[in-house]
């Protein structure tokens, strides 16, 4: 039994060591990181949109972390913005940095596409604005009505992407999602992390 306990305690100890270096130290270091003064907390509507972004798994195709141009110059050249720093994520709980770029990076989508109409149409049918896009449509964030009430947000949809008759109205969820996407604007200045060159290793 002694040896069995030794193995299990040894295993636990090693994991503890890993936790110290990979969880505790970065936590301490990054929580002292300066929050960029121009970064604003999410409004209630934006946070509601962010929850929908999580619920519908946007993170599985979109990253939110442009890399340093000295490391991967494509990120900046595509207009995705300056490299992000830990302080940029101060209000992000949980983080949504992502690991896939099946679609483009969205760290600055609010700066690239500031128009409500573009976002609503794109969410309703991505192929109405981007030819051959493989993004799924989010029609369940919209309602089809015969004629819209005056406080409804009507989405203008070009042929042949709209319904045969009636109008398409954005739900509160769709408007919240657009509010969040437009809030993704980190074009303010921030101190950048030193990045190693790509050919260092």
């Amino acid at each position: 039994m002694k040896r069995a306990i030794a193995i299990m305690v040894g295993a636990a100890f090693i994991l503890l060591l890993a936790m110290l270096t990979l969880v505790v130290l970065p936590y301490i270091q990054m929580s002292t990181e300066q929050v960029p003064p121009d970064l604003e907390p999410y409004t209630e509507l934006e946070q509601q949109g962010r929850d929908l972004y999580i619920a519908n798994g946007c993170v599985y195709c979109h990253s939110q972390q442009p890399r340093d141009p000295s490391f991967a110059k494509g990120d900046k050249d595509r207009g995705w913005g300056r490299p992000s720093v830990p302080g940029d994520y101060y209000y992000d709980r949980p983080h949504l940095m992502g690991t896939m770029r099946t679609g483009p990076d969205l760290f600055n989508i609010g700066a690239r596409q500031p128009s409500d109409d573009w976002h609503l149409l794109h969410l309703y049918n991505p192929r109405a604005v981007v030819e051959d896009s493989i993004m799924p449509p989010y029609r369940f964030l919209f309602r089809e009505v015969e004629s819209a009430d005056e406080d409804d947000h009507v989405v203008k949809i070009p042929d042949p992407y709209g319904p045969d008759s009636g109008q398409v109205v954005a739900t509160d969820d769709a408007l919240a999602m657009v509010a969040y996407l437009k809030a993704l604007d980190h074009s303010y200045p921030a101190p950048t992390l030193p990045q190693p060159d790509a050919d260092e290793e």
Binding site: M19, P26, P86, H95
Partner: peptide, 11 residues
């Protein structure tokens, strides 16, 4: 919270 979440996530 924030950026420290990503390290815990991938750890």
């Amino acid at each position: 919270p924030g950026a420290s979440g990503v390290t815990v996530n991938w750890w």
